[in-house]
Computed example of a mutant assay.
Amino acid sequence: MADHSTYPVGLRHSPDKHQRLRQALSNPSILMAPGCFDCITAKLVANAGFSAGYITGSGVSMSALGAPDMGVISFAEVLERAMRIADSVDIPLICDADTGYGGPINLIRTVRDLERAGVSGIQIEDQAWPKKCGHEPGRKIVDTDEMVGRIKAAVDARHDDDLVIIARTDARTTEGIERAIERAQRYHEAGADVLFVESPESEAEMRLINQSLTAPTLANMVEGGRTPVLPATELEGIGYALAIYPNSLTRMIAHQGAAMLQVLKQSGATAGFADRMVNHRGLWDLFDYPTWTELENRFSKT
């Protein structure tokens, strides 16, 4: 059997990604998972030394369709992007799977296809379709029993028991924090590994979530959103096991990209922005260019 250990990440499969994610969630220190929406942003997350990444549904919708996070994107489009991202980096990835994209049978397919694509954690929420960003108004949620069915279907569908199922509830905004916590507890009883109470509106509510729930919890850090954005050490002290930063990179790229384009438009050159850009070689090396070249040479005619 050929030894593929020296292949670029895009040409090898790491079968222990699920196990690594589950182990990281059991550690006493909080797991930070920055958002990514394509292979470039995933590479940046991995190369920065983070132990996991978060495939952001809103970021994928914006980058793939030019559309906001309003349920416009299809499962096929999310799956294609998730597969490419998972094949490009060697860190575990959590994928935002919205509502599961249909009824129980659709959700079973969603879990199985994402697991085959190389995703190690799948997030499912209790919104009604079409879903919306968890920090925007107008969200509608399904009844608790329907979401319990979604979680049970997801748990039953996974092939590897180490695949992490994350249950998100958006009940805080419409039903209050106590009701949201009650829902999260029901989802844990249904088999969810991690609980995600979306958009708590104060540090006191964040503390209440962690005092009330025994399962690992997720904090969603959205700059300018409904929830206080706290340092990871403070989130860890509150009791969170996982923190995601869905669109931090997206916002930075939008801001810096706009600034660079203004420099180019006004001066006719990018020199004024050069110190804030990687050079040609740096960009190519981000994608393991020397390794790809060595592999090409190994099998090319001489």
Rank of each mutant, 00 (worst) to 15 (best):
G49E: 01
A33S: 04
G100K: 04
E189D: 15
G66Q: 11
R20S: 14
G57P: 02
G49W: 01
V111Y: 05
G268H: 09
G66S: 10
L79P: 01
A171I: 07
I105V: 14
A97K: 02
F50E: 08
R22W: 01
G138S: 09
P130K: 11
E198P: 03
Q256D: 15
G257A: 10
G176N: 13
A258C: 10
F75Q: 05
L249G: 01
L79Y: 03
E296S: 11
A64H: 11
L218Q: 02
G272D: 07
T250N: 06
R109W: 11
S248D: 09
S61I: 05
E125S: 00
D156I: 05
N210R: 09
I244S: 08
T144Y: 04
I122Y: 03
R84M: 05
L286Y: 02
L79F: 06
M147C: 12
G118Q: 08
T217Y: 09
L218R: 00
R281I: 00
G118L: 06
S212K: 11
L208E: 14
S202W: 09
S29F: 02
L249Y: 01
A241L: 10
L286P: 00
I108G: 11
G71L: 05
H13V: 09
Q266E: 11
V263P: 00
D162L: 03
I91L: 07
G134N: 05
I30M: 04
P290A: 04
W292L: 15
A167S: 05
A24S: 13
D156R: 11
P200Y: 07
D285W: 11
D16Y: 14
G66H: 10
P200T: 09
E175F: 13
A171D: 08
R226H: 14
G191A: 12
I151F: 13
Y289V: 08
Y7M: 03
A64L: 12
V45K: 05
S14G: 10
D69C: 05
P28Q: 14
N247W: 01
K131D: 07
A86T: 09
G57W: 01
S26F: 12
R84D: 03
G53V: 02
S5C: 04
E175T: 09
H4A: 13
K132Y: 05
A274D: 14
P200G: 09
H159G: 12
D285C: 10
D145R: 12
G149S: 13
F196L: 06
L295N: 08
I91E: 02
A153R: 02
P34I: 02
P34E: 03
S63Q: 15
D126F: 00
D113S: 13
N297H: 15
H280D: 01
A204M: 07
G224A: 10
R12W: 12
E136A: 06
I55E: 00
R251I: 03
E115R: 05
D96I: 01
R20L: 15
A243K: 04
S26V: 11
P228H: 13
R81V: 07
L235D: 02
L230N: 05
